[in-house]
């Protein structure tokens, strides 16, 4: 592929990448990504071992 204007080409690529990163960082789902930041701190379910189970 022949690039007519190398400066313009790289400028466009860079601006596009910055634009997509900015949009992705929004809390609203515009392009992709999860909305809730709070819940990412939940790593796993912690089992409570003091409760008494029903026998089957």
């Amino acid at each position: 592929m022949k690039i007519q204007n190398r400066r313009r080409f790289f400028k466009n690529i860079t601006l596009g990448a910055i634009g997509i990163s900015v949009l992705n960082s929004f809390p609203v789902k515009l392009i992709a990504g999860n909305r809730k930041g709070n819940v990412n701190s939940v790593s796993k379910v912690k089992i409570h071992n003091q409760a008494v189970k029903r026998s089957r």
Binding site: V28, K29, N34, R35, K36, V39, N40, V42
Partner: peptide, 12 residues
């Protein structure tokens, strides 16, 4: 994903 800004689309 659609309801209330993806309210129920999360890990919890």
């Amino acid at each position: 994903d659609h309801f209330a800004n993806a309210y129920y689309q999360n890990d919890v």
